[in-house]
């Protein structure tokens, strides 16, 4: 099962002007992995489909602000 968010830690210099805000994230949503959609995938009910923006649970890749958790770390550190 693929993960839909990846993290990496760039080099942090002791001379950087701002406190580091690491690790850095980027999104890798489901369409990068699915290939041609197979037949017979599970479906949401029409109402759920509207709420999710897709008919297919297998295509649903929600997004959350990655800074929400990072900010806290940053504050604790500094």
């Amino acid at each position: 099962m693929a993960t839909y968010r990846k993290w990496y830690t760039p080099y942090v210099s002791p001379l950087d002007p701002c406190p580091p805000l690491v690790p850095v994230s980027y999104e890798t949503p489901v369409q990068l992995y699915l290939g041609f959609q197979p037949t017979g995938m599970k479906q949401f009910s029409p109402f759920e489909a509207l709420a999710h923006g897709t008919l297919w649970p297998g295509l649903f890749t929600p997004y959350t602000n990655p800074y929400a958790s990072k900010k806290r770390r940053h504050d604790n550190d500094g």
Binding site: P29, V30, Q31, L34, G35, F36, Q37, H52, G53, T54, W56, L59, F60, T61, P62, Y63
Partner: peptide, 20 residues
């Protein structure tokens, strides 16, 4: 905005299938 973002994902998926 989360809804609109999910639609971009579905569109990307469909365009990738069109290429296939």
């Amino acid at each position: 905005l989360g809804f609109l973002r999910e639609r971009e994902i579905v569109h990307s998926q469909r365009f990738r299938e069109a290429v296939e």
